[in-house]
Write a protein that binds this DNA or RNA. Structure first.
Lengths: 112, 112
DNA sequence: GTATTGTTTAGCGAGTTCGCTAAGTGTAGT
DNA sequence: ACTACACTTAGCGAACTCGCTAAACAATAC
């Protein structure tokens, strides 16, 4: 069933999901690692990069997926997590102008 | 006494402070309101914009100040809070490149 | 089938966050 | 001095977060 909330509200929720996801250092780090590895890694490879237990990493991945910052592609018994930069730029483009900063793609120098 | 940690570590802490501060909807909203009001407002004006109790808003302001996203200028018995956009752009410039997105001021189109 | 490998789910405990109300601090006005 | 105003600090409770371990699941290998 479709989401029946008006567009604006959904945006706010999605913005909240993105910023909340980015608020934890480990999750930001996951995105970085994903980037250096060409944007796609299995859960195991990712988990091996961190000192946390594997389930802990799994949960962080879940938060990132729900925020739309990564997507998951199952392949046999592996799961490949893929970086979704567009989601990040979309969130920035949506929010930055509201604090006077121009969208990510079209920044204006702040009039200090 | 000065902070004796090496520059890189301090950056990471500051980045964490900024992203943590931005993770709460109310705090993002405070920055927006501050922007629409020319970047400077008293605590009372700010508090009046939200349905929360004044002390709750005060605490949010404290988080934003500590993250460096706003600064405070006492004036008589008022306190003027001032938007600090530079801090935000600095955080973006520091972090975005690490996930393949070009700094805020010099974005490259993501190579989708 | 059974075992093994890759990964998630369940559930717990410590710590943090975020709302509140009540009390405190400091400046200005009379 | 005393009152009023602007604002913060203290402290509480409910909810959430984040780490863990143990158990479950799902796909491949034997």
């Amino acid at each position: 069933m479709a989401d029946r909330r008006p567009r604006g509200l959904r945006d706010l929720d999605e913005l909240d999901a993105v910023f909340s996801a980015l608020s934890h250092n480990t999750r930001r780090h996951i995105l970085q690692v994903l980037h250096t590895r060409k944007g796609s890694m299995t859960a195991g490879e990712l988990a091996a990069c961190f000192s946390h237990s594997w389930p802990t990493t799994t949960r962080h991945l879940g938060v990132l997926v729900q925020a739309g910052l990564i997507t998951v592609r199952p392949d046999g018994r592996e799961r490949h997590y893929v970086l979704n930069r567009e989601r990040l730029t979309a969130a920035l483009d949506l929010w930055l102008p509201s604090v006077g900063l121009g969208s990510y793609r079209q920044p204006r120098p702040d009039p200090s």
